[in-house]
Design a protein around this nucleic acid. Structure first.
Lengths: 287, 287
DNA sequence: TCCTGTCATACCTGCCAGGTATCACCGCGT
DNA sequence: ACGCGGTGATACCTGGCAGGTATGACAGGA
């Protein structure tokens, strides 16, 4: 029962994503025939049909879909092994090297918490060096999986914590951010239904995995753009309470009664055994 | 930034476990020199020193320990990809193949629940075939990770659910199982301190990952043996309430007031996307 | 009907994984 | 001190296989 080689997985994932041998081969920097042969060989070794070759292009079989998902996970794990090992380089003591840790945070979220965490951790004796890696909110899970990051600050309900270990740090409510002059801005509280139903203020849309859900509101790319569109009276947004720190004078924040609370978690790969990480998590939960 | 090959990971894990090139090579079914060269090449490609070669044997560096952990995870993921793909073989419809599912259960635990689950799921329209894989309680996590199983019934606090998705199914208290004639067997309830302090009845010890914690009690290998030792008045055990079903006449079960409750979960790999699995989980949570 | 775009096949070649033989080194016994 | 056993490293060779080029088989569209 010979094991799959990462080369084979790389090839198959490329084909499964492109659904085209020629393009996949180009992406892999090789010619098409060896790729064709490699996949045939893979199918023979697994004893399973992975692709349905119609003369016009290629389709995945059920087994092919399984291998696409599982293969991606395996490739991520392999890439993570390489990256984390490189990062741990140099250090020599076999019990607890104080290597670097890469912390992935959604750009501009949890300012306050992040600063407190970094300060408190730096004050710990024997603490590791923390590299902060700002990223979009959907990238964080990928970064943890493929080893570009070791630990992340995530926010439910936007992030899924599935597959990771985590500790909850803070909980906060959400507010609607409206143009200061808008009639709703005078209210003490609002409900989600209130802000969804404003005809002249369509709800802003954030990207999820690079794509936008359909809807009437503007597509938001960054915080500054959102702030400006709200100030111009073009949209309304629902954001965590802590976002009040970056509001403008032309904005009014009104608490939402029925929005789900936002919980900030510190998150890391479940199998991680790094002492530096354990220290960081301990510091975070004590804040 | 070339990627690691599973062959290299396999070699390194073997060496890191044996801490000896010769034995590792033998385990891998190859000669020692190519193994030596492969590891050197791996170190050069990663730009990291993985092993400290003392003339007498080998020691892991910090980076080596990281690669051992991460590499094992990557190898598990790769093996899982192969196994799950093979298992999904044959099926052709690309959206939702109704393949087989392998369900790992601790041998003889959750009888009742398991029977109800299997019956209810089999009655579902379009349900997949379920293969029940009995195993020790510590193997389950490994089976899920390396793809020999797709889903498991686990019991906190004995199993760790870290790294998996799960749904809680049932909660039960724990009881102390004593020889019927013992003085403590007359009590209505007991505390953990009570059963830990009985001088003539040392607490039975279960294996954890194949090894036994130190202590005075007998080392238990299976349920029958435990039942016998209790009946003989040699030991006492703390077990979940549902274990009452296999007690003998010579046993008495006394509820424990302060033992942590045992929760049975249905558990699966976090990234799983199988429709058959989703159906099984849905059935389980509706029981 | 030919042309175009697809994946498969045939055949060759160079590289590298792996084997054998051997070395360099150290600890340990006598 | 000296040889001996056991460690990992080195030198050198070879066969298999990954990858390239050229081409075939086949379907659909103008």
């Amino acid at each position: 029962m010979d094991t799959l080689e990462t080369r084979e997985l790389r090839y198959f994932v490329a084909i499964a994503e492109e659904l085209h041998f020629g393009r996949a081969a180009e992406r892999l920097g090789m010619a098409q025939p060896p790729l064709s042969r490699a996949i045939q060989q893979l199918e023979r070794r697994l004893g399973v049909c992975l692709l349905q070759r119609n003369r016009r292009g290629v389709r995945l079989t059920g087994a092919g879909e399984v291998l696409l998902h599982e293969g991606r996970a395996a490739l991520d794990a392999t890439a993570a092994a390489a990256r984390r090992t490189r990062r741990a380089g140099g250090s020599d003591s076999p019990g607890g090297p104080r290597g670097r840790l890469v912390l992935a945070v959604k750009a501009a979220a949890s300012h306050e918490l992040l600063r407190k965490l970094l300060d408190a951790y730096a004050a710990e004796p024997g603490s590791a060096e923390i590299e902060v890696l700002p990223c979009g909110i959907c990238e964080q899970e990928e970064l943890l999986r493929d080893g570009r990051a070791d630990v992340a600050l995530m926010h439910t309900p936007w992030n899924s914590l599935a597959g990771f270990d985590s500790e909850a740090l803070t909980t906060e409510g959400q507010v609607a951010v409206l143009p200061a002059g808008h009639p709703l801005a005078a209210r003490e509280t609002l409900s989600l239904a209130d802000v969804r139903d404003v005809p002249d203020l369509p709800l802003a849309r954030w990207p999820t995995h690079g794509t936008y859900a359909p809807g009437p509101g503007p597509e938001i790319h960054n915080q500054t753009q959102l702030a400006q569109l709200i100030a111009l009276g073009r949209t309304v947004a629902v954001v965590p309470d802590s976002a009040r720190s970056w509001l403008w004078a032309e904005h009014t924040a009104v608490p939402l009664t029925d929005a789900p609370p936002v919980v900030t978690h510190i998150v890391w790969p479940a199998h991680s055994r790094s002492l530096a990480l354990a220290g960081l998590v301990r510091t975070a939960t004590r804040l």
